[in-house]
């Protein structure tokens, strides 16, 4: 009960802070949104100016006997209020996109999800078997790990130009960046997980006649499966962080393109809406995967008794 409350609280608290900053006029509000320009030439209704500037203009107009400008305290344009973001979140799905090649938010998102999926899938296709082998066979580990240790320090975005040169400007280089960013960590993490398998299990299976590939498939892999699943969840989060970089390479696309476009036109409410959706998508998918993990591995020591 109290756990659920704390869970909810961890989301509600930041929102409350955001509400206070947005709706209580004296908390921050360093600017004034002009409602009436008065005698000042360069002011227009809807414009935001710094409070100091606004005050000096008011004083100046009073001195000259002209109409002083009027306005309400406001936050900078880059901090929209919660309700504005909520409205943006709604209109993002209801209002058709502007521009000729404008894209719906969900179209951008779907494109991003596809990039993540393929990047992570291809990385796992190589990384998981290689990691398991390296963890189970010291010979493989000694052959593979030094190079990977070196390579994982090379920043994945640095390969952007190369990836475009090799794979073209569309989705190829984006997927490649996610693979480069994930794969090398993945091999090391999976190898480490494999090494942590209880040696008693391996020894017990050897006294029962298991060896070679059968030992690997029948004992090592099922033995590490719950931990491997947890690793994959963490690595999937890792892949998400490379998404933003990947989507700026070649032709911008996906959710990153959407965000940069909206920021360019100062539609920060849309930017926040997109960020919230990315967060919800990541958090939600991880939550679902965690629930699924508990169903898949009922024997797992870290979930037993929970």
């Amino acid at each position: 009960m109290s756990r659920t409350l704390l869970h909810i609280g961890s989301f509600v608290l930041p929102v409350i802070v955001w509400c206070i900053v947005s709706y209580v006029p004296f908390v921050w509000h360093p600017q004034v949104e002009v409602t009436l320009a008065g005698g000042v030439d360069y002011l227009q209704p809807g414009m935001r100016v710094d409070s100091d500037e606004f005050a000096s203009q008011v004083a100046q107009m009073r001195e000259q006997g002209a109409t002083p400008p009027q306005g309400v305290p406001a936050n900078p344009i880059y901090l929209p209020a919660p309700h504005e973001v909520a409205v943006a979140l709604y209109t993002a799905f209801t209002k058709p996109p502007e521009g000729r090649d404008g894209q719906w938010l969900h179209q951008s998102l779907w494109h991003s999800v596809q990039i993540i999926f393929w990047g992570f899938f291809l990385s796992s296709l190589v990384g998981v078997p290689l990691g398991v082998l390296a963890g189970a066979q010291p010979v493989v580990a000694r052959l593979v790990e030094p190079f990977i240790e070196f390579f994982r320090y090379l920043p994945a975005p640095a390969f952007g130009a190369l990836a475009v040169a090799v794979l073209g400007i569309y989705d190829g280089p984006k997927i490649a960046i996610i693979v480069i960013g994930t794969l090398f960590q993945q091999v090391l993490v999976v190898a480490n997980t494999t090494r942590k398998l209880d040696t008693t299990l391996v020894e017990a299976s050897r006294t029962l006649g298991a060896r070679g590939l059968r030992l690997l498939v029948r004992v090592v892999v099922p033995g590490i499966l719950p931990d491997l699943y947890r690793d994959q969840r963490i690595l999937l989060g890792w892949a998400w962080t490379y998404l933003i970089v990947a989507e700026l390479i070649g032709t911008s696309s996906g959710i990153t393109w959407y965000i940069t476009q909206q920021a360019r036109y100062q539609h920060f409410d849309n930017v926040y809406a997109a960020i919230v959706i990315i967060g919800a998508l990541g958090f939600g998918s991880d939550y679902l995967l965690a629930r699924l993990g508990r169903r898949l591995f009922p024997w797992d020591r870290q979930t037993v008794g929970r």
Partner: peptide
Amino acid sequence: GYSLFPWL
């Protein structure tokens, strides 16, 4: 120690 395969 416990050497049974926990997944079986």
